[in-house]
Design a binder for these strands. Structure first.
Length: 910
DNA sequence: GGGCGGTTATA
DNA sequence: GTATAACCGCCCG
């Protein structure tokens, strides 16, 4: 017997059902122009999933049309209680329709009926034509359509549960053909189908299971009381009374299967997607991942629509070079990029340089490609010597992407890069710090719709990655020239956007741009550490860690990996049966520090683990690692400061991170003692006192807070006096500690819950503290309210200097997200203003040190602290000048106070 | 080797 | 309750 080849099933998608579900399920995402995108993303990702899951199947998508349907004619109250569609959802419908069309999916939007009716009709017609149908919907009413040839699937649910005839019976307790009767009896609040009052799910089921169908229920009303459900005795009367309503409800609940359609199931076919149209939409809506997926490397949206005009030249002769130098000299502005052998600016060797003078016109000058068969190249030293005047000229304006890197690399070739006019990374960062990552690949995709050649494309990745000097010059030239070209184009795209916001232009020009060179210098200065001290500490730590491990094994009665939270949890909570205090997001019992702290009160093992953890952290992250990070040439460690990473405007530091060197414990401070001054020099550590609270005083203009600071009070003590109603010199240590937690809480946008946890008091008493605080400092309360409102209204918050942070989630309907955004709204202006202030101080200090030729260098920044290494003889002069400039970096309505310490090491300087 | 969860160091 | 970076273990391809 030959089995007939089965045709792939027809997929009918209930677009309208998914539209609403996606809208409510997705966070309130939006593109930077404000266009909401959550529902679009939700619906389209579902379509993509269907296409992937059913690659052979024709897929049709059906939406409700605007306006009334025949059901409104039958019953004017139908769906009358539906609130009007929210604007944010309405604005997403047109893009969804357009994208679905561009994806090549046939779409049905039929007036006068609902999507359900169109689906019912198409499914019936398909069945008649011998084709099986799968209806993708989240709407349970569709269960009435299920038969041997029609199944439902809910694509939005993770389990993707299919529902066939058996499935309907299992779920509802009745077969598909009784679903309409079920709905008719029960009614539907949402659609305003009346049903029979007093009949709910249970009663409707009992009736239908007992008597078969709505009609037979009415024929056999006298049997109803024998069914024995609750209220069965009075039910016949109710049913009789509302008979016409029940029949009307059945009519309303019945999905039509005979709608007149111009297209039938046979017209639903897979069509080739319209790539250009899709790209346009994805770009406009900022769907980065999907845009990237559509493009192949080196391709631009423009390429899909029309060929792009680029001329990239590989400069291999002196004549070519001369010509390019001449053109660069004449250019108002040019883009510039170096290609090197390493991301580490202290080790990188220049392999080539690239330039762009106008969009599409770029050159790559290979200088040190080194592989078998590499063509002869111009001499690196000679070329750099020829370029030096150009690169060192402040009048020759340059743009680049992360020019700090190029500046640091060039410095090692004795070229001091000047004339930095723009940096696309920082333009993008200042424009919107969180819209995207600010690497060139991301920026090209976001702002130009262009998928650049990625470094991995030409150099490979992982262990097999080659260095740039190994890359064939032909490929290298495409990549490098494109980098310069794209940098120029990005600038052309970003500068006008920035110009729309004068305060952002100021932040860019007066803070971020001048900071580039300051940071480059600090990084190259590096910090001197004494590896001997750290190595000695490592040995001691290893010994103590070993002892703790042995003791832990004894207590546990077996050996296990103390570094594994999983194995530790097994021992603590299963074997030793300690109480589970908190769970991790994944449901595993937490062994985090506060949990172990609490358990340590009653049990010995957690205490050991705590010490083990803290010592292991110190050893692995600091005492072992820092000596490894010493640059062999300079004998110092050179961090990287990232200028375009944080949401708020702070710097971050990595490789190594010098902004989280321990300070709280004695063992931790030993690590700071290994950060030393060179012989004949001292370290100066200068930090702003309470800068964020001072900024809050300034921004809120709260009288009490302003007074506390202008009178030079210990602010935590002053807060304690106010909140606990005691004279300031009678504040206990405990009261001060609580007040300090409250002050920090304020900066973090605190809730009573969070404060309670921090203080170890009840939520109620925490709330009382907060209420008391706001009573005493009403200006702060007003400020907090104002900032929440203004953030919600504008969609962003600002620092004192006008740096912006966009907070799209502040309008989220998800309360968790909304509250989180509100906390950020409160914190960001303070944290960000502090960052703006210290950045300006750094610029000013750098100018002063450079001009005065003092033997002093900035070597580190830790958010509110600057560390300088200074010749001993000049220490006093530098401390005075440093404090002066840090204090003068901002003019607030409270004084800025800077505390400075001097020492032979960082710990001593505190 | 890459990605992620859990944890912990700092302001 | 804010903002980061880096370690280890563990699971996956």
């Amino acid at each position: 017997m030959t089995k007939q080849q089965k045709q792939p099933p027809l997929i009918l998608v209930d677009g309208s059902s998914y539209l609403f579900r996606a809208y409510h399920a997705m966070p309130a995402l939006s593109a930077s122009d404000g266009q909401p995108t959550g529902a679009i993303r939700g619906v389209i990702s579902m379509m993509r999933r269907l296409i992937k899951d059913f690659p052979e199947s024709p897929i049709g998508v059906i939406f409700d049309a605007k306006g009334p349907t025949f059901r409104n004619t039958i019953y004017s109250e139908y769906k009358a209680h539906r609130p009007p569609m929210p604007d944010e959802l309405r604005e997403q419908i047109e893009p969804i329709h357009a994208i679905i069309k561009a994806m090549g999916l046939p779409m049905f939007v039929i007036e006068g009926v609902e999507a359900d009716d169109v689906i019912g009709t198409l499914a019936r017609q398909a069945t008649e034509a011998g084709i099986d149908t799968i209806i993708s919907t989240g709407d349970k009413d569709m269960a009435q359509l299920v038969n041997q040839h029609i199944t439902l699937v809910n694509t939005m649910k993770d389990d993707d549960a299919f529902m066939n005839v058996e499935g309907v019976k299992a779920k509802f307790g009745i077969p598909p053909e009784l679903i309409i009767d079920f709905l008719a009896l029960m009614g539907d609040k949402v659609d305003n189908i009346p049903g029979v009052p007093g009949v709910g799910e249970k009663t409707a089921l009992a009736l239908l299971q007992g008597l078969g169908s709505l009609e037979s229920v009415y024929e056999r009303l006298e049997e109803v009381p024998t069914l024995g459900f609750r209220g069965a005795k009075t039910m016949p009367k109710k049913l009789e009374e509302h008979k016409s309503q029940a029949l009307l409800s059945k009519q309303l609940a019945t999905i039509k299967t005979d709608v007149e359609l111009k297209m039938g199931p046979a017209d639903i076919k897979l069509v080739e997607p319209d790539k250009a149209a899709l790209l346009d939409w994805f770009k406009k809506l900022e769907f980065k991942g999907w845009t990237e997926e559509l493009l192949s490397a080196g391709e631009t949206i423009d390429d899909v629509e029309q060929a792009l005009d680029v001329t990239y030249e590989t400069v291999l002769t002196q004549q070519q070079l001369d010509s390019w130098i001449k053109q660069l000299e004449q250019a108002e502005l040019f883009a510039f990029d170096t290609e090197t052998t390493s991301l580490d600016y202290m080790q990188a060797e220049i392999v080539g340089v690239s330039f762009a003078i106008e969009a599409g016109k770029a050159a790559y000058v290979p200088l040190a490609h080194n592989y078998v068969g590499a063509p002869e190249q111009l001499d690196r030293d000679k070329v750099l010597a020829l370029l030096k005047p150009l690169l060192e000229s402040a009048d020759q304006k340059k743009i680049g992407q992360n020019l700090k890197y190029d500046q640091s690399v060039l410095a090692r070739y004795d070229i001091e890069l000047k004339g930095i006019a723009f940096d696309t990374m920082l333009e993008s960062y200042v424009l919107d710090s969180t819209a995207t990552r600010h690497d060139m690949d991301s920026l090209a995709l976001k702002y130009l719709g262009h998928k650049t050649i990625h470094f991995e494309d030409i150099a490979g990745k992982g262990a097999k990655q080659i260095t740039f000097d190994q890359v064939a010059i032909e490929q290298a030239a495409e990549y490098a020239a494109e980098d310069a070209d794209i940098t120029l184009r990005l600038h052309q795209a970003l500068e006008p956007k920035l110009a729309e916001h004068p305060t952002l232009v100021k932040v860019f020009k007066e803070i971020e741009l001048p900071l580039i060179s300051v940071l480059s210098k600090m990084e190259r200065n590096g910090a001197l550490i004494n590896p001997g001290l750290l190595q000695k500490q490592s040995v001691e730590l290893a010994k103590r860690i070993d002892e703790l491990e042995k003791a832990a094994f004894d207590l546990a009665g077996e050996e296990f990996n103390l570094g594994s939270a999983k194995q530790l949890g097994e021992i603590l909570f299963n074997k030793l049966e300690l109480p589970v205090i908190k769970k991790t997001p994944k449901g595993q019992p937490s062994t985090a520090e506060p949990v172990l702290q609490e358990l340590a009160l009653d049990y010995p093992l957690p205490k050991l683990i705590l010490e083990y953890r803290s010592l292991s952290k110190l050893k692995s992250t600091y005492t072992d690692k820092l000596p490894e990070m010493i640059n062999p040439e300079t004998g110092r460690v050179h961090t990287s400061y990232h200028q375009a990473v944080t949401a708020t405007g702070r710097l971050s530091s990595s490789d190594p991170n010098l902004q989280n060197i321990p300070i709280r414990t004695a063992e931790g401070r030993r690590i700071r003692q290994a950060f030393v001054a060179s012989p004949g020099y001292k370290l100066i550590a200068a930090d702003y006192s309470q800068i964020e609270l001072r900024i809050m005083a300034h921004l809120s203009n709260d009288e009490g807070l302003l007074n506390a600071f202008s009178q030079g009070r210990d602010v935590h003590r002053a807060t304690a006096a106010e909140v606990f109603g005691v004279p300031i010199d009678e504040v206990t240590d405990n009261q001060r500690r609580s007040a300090k937690a409250i002050n920090f809480g304020l900066i973090y946008g605190m809730s009573a819950f969070g404060l309670a946890k921090q203080l170890g008091v009840s939520r109620k008493s925490a709330q009382e503290y907060i209420d008391l605080y706001f009573e005493r400092y009403p200006g702060v309360l007003t400020y907090m309210d104002d900032i929440r409102h203004s953030a919600a209204e504008k969609g962003y918050v600002e620092t004192l200097f006008g740096r912006r942070l966009y907070l799209p989630e502040i309008r989220s309907r998800n309360q968790m997200r909304k509250k989180a955004a509100e906390r950020t709204a409160i914190n960001a202006p303070m944290q960000g203003t502090a960052a703006d202030i210290i950045k300006q101080a750094m610029i000013s200090v750098d100018q002063w040190l450079t001009a005065s030729q003092l033997d002093a260098n900035m070597i580190m920044q830790v958010h509110d602290e600057l560390i300088l290494e200074v010749a001993e003889a000049q220490v006093d002069e530098v401390v005075a000048g440093l404090k002066l400039r840090m204090v003068a970096a901002a003019d607030l309505s409270v004084p800025l106070i800077v505390d400075a310490g001097i020492g032979d090491n960082w710990d001593q300087a505190h």
